[in-house]
Design a protein around this nucleic acid. Structure first.
Lengths: 232, 232
DNA sequence: CGCATACTTGACGTCATTCAAACCGTGTGG
DNA sequence: CCACACGGTTTGAATGACGTCAAGTATGCG
């Protein structure tokens, strides 16, 4: 079914890129392509038949809903990212599309079989899981101590890095994948505070706002300083 | 060398428990037992030859040091937990013993080989990585929005769960594995705030303090309510 | 044009931090 | 045996950062 593999934009970077051509075809036969519009849900917390998926294009958010009904964004998923809890009996979090997204989805049983059949896949997924763990810990480090300004600077810095093709350089201009409410939500702040701090970062000369979503990096070094991170 | 496997307290719960007897022996031959005293470091952020390890007894903390020299605890490791970044060129965080701890350590190259040789091990490590990811996300959810009281209640609740043998029940009395400074550090609070909220939780009748480190759960249901979590 | 949605800006209140001092258990030396 | 110092902890008062509430400004869509 997925002759799509041949033209897949993430065929060289997704987890399945470690497979041989035949292995990949076999796996592709079990998967199916799915398109989600902004706001559509891949699966919800509590789903027991939650699928697994590789994100081909677009962006997803992973979020928790606490008792009082407020949502908390825990992570973003970018193209070539893998999503899915392989061992939990049910999903712990919601996964929702931030923009129109295309995914390559698999039933969990199929991924399970593939892990056993292709050791390289298990290794690739392990690597991804450890990278996810690392980025979640970075977020944790940020939200635990840092001021609102530092958190926002770090997030903008990350977005600039994600928006750039090369991993070692920042995009000098990019569109925010999130609206103010979602940014606030990710950083554990309020919309108003994000708005104010955005203004302050602009006054400091670190960034310039281009419309509602556009950001230009005026002084990347200053932004890095404000973000409280020493390295890239 | 590790005839110790036979009497290992975590032989049925650690990652290596999925191996056959022969496989386990082969792996054990590559590992060595190590004992750390409180405060001793397994490896530091930046180490390129960082070992991997299964924690046999005791407790570890994973922490980041930000530019201004303050430490931030990102995770705790309990017995049977696995520690080590298999794919990063160098360690991103410090790993330090909280109490005297015994570990079963391996050179990364050996674990690497074992992953390829024993698919079941790769699967077990993947499972652990996903569980670690989940617990880190829970911490993230907590520190992003919750009040000081909620954070502390949740942490105490987690400790009560960890201190109990059965996973579905809470220990009614336990010793905190951390001092006030470390608790504050984990929760992104100050020592003083932790101390105050600890007093308030006692006044509310949720807990009773037994000396500096001892905690008795007077009203577990109340503690759960205060922790803002609906389920276990 | 009118309404809806997203964002910005201001005034005020609250909660955690900061700074400071007291407290307590433990070990050490006179 | 007591005095003392020291680390960990508790408590108090004042400051400040972020949240809340409320109004005002775009931008887009029917």
């Amino acid at each position: 079914m997925n002759a799509a593999c041949e033209t897949c934009p993430v065929r060289d970077s997704a987890a399945c890129s470690v497979l041989t051509e035949e292995e990949r075809s076999a796996l592709a036969a079990a998967g199916r392509t799915r398109v989600l519009d902004r706001g559509e849900m891949l699966f919800a917390a509590g789903d027991s038949h939650a699928a697994c998926a590789t994100l081909v294009s677009g962006a997803l958010k992973v979020c928790a809903i606490d008792r009082d009904g407020t949502e908390q964004i825990l992570a973003l998923v970018h193209p070539s990212g893998f999503i899915g809890e392989l061992f939990a009996p049910f999903a712990h979090h919601d996964v929702v599309a931030l923009t129109q997204s295309t995914l390559c989805t698999f039933a969990r049983a199929d991924i399970d079989r593939a892990i056993d059949a292709y050791p390289a896949l298990a290794r690739a997924l392990l690597r991804r899981a450890q990278e996810d763990l690392l980025s979640t810990r970075n977020m944790l480090e940020l939200t635990a101590n840092a001021s609102a300004e530092t958190r926002l600077a770090a997030l903008l810095h990350d977005f600039a890095a994600a928006a750039s093709a090369s991993s070692c350089h920042l995009a000098s201009e990019f569109e925010l994948p999130l609206n103010r409410g979602e940014i606030a939500n990710m950083l554990g702040l309020t919309i108003e505070t994000v708005s104010r701090k955005m203004g302050e970062l602009e006054n400091l000369g670190a960034i310039a706002r281009k419309g509602k979503r556009g950001i230009e990096l005026v002084d990347p070094a200053l932004l890095l300083t404000l973000s409280g991170r020493s390295s890239v």
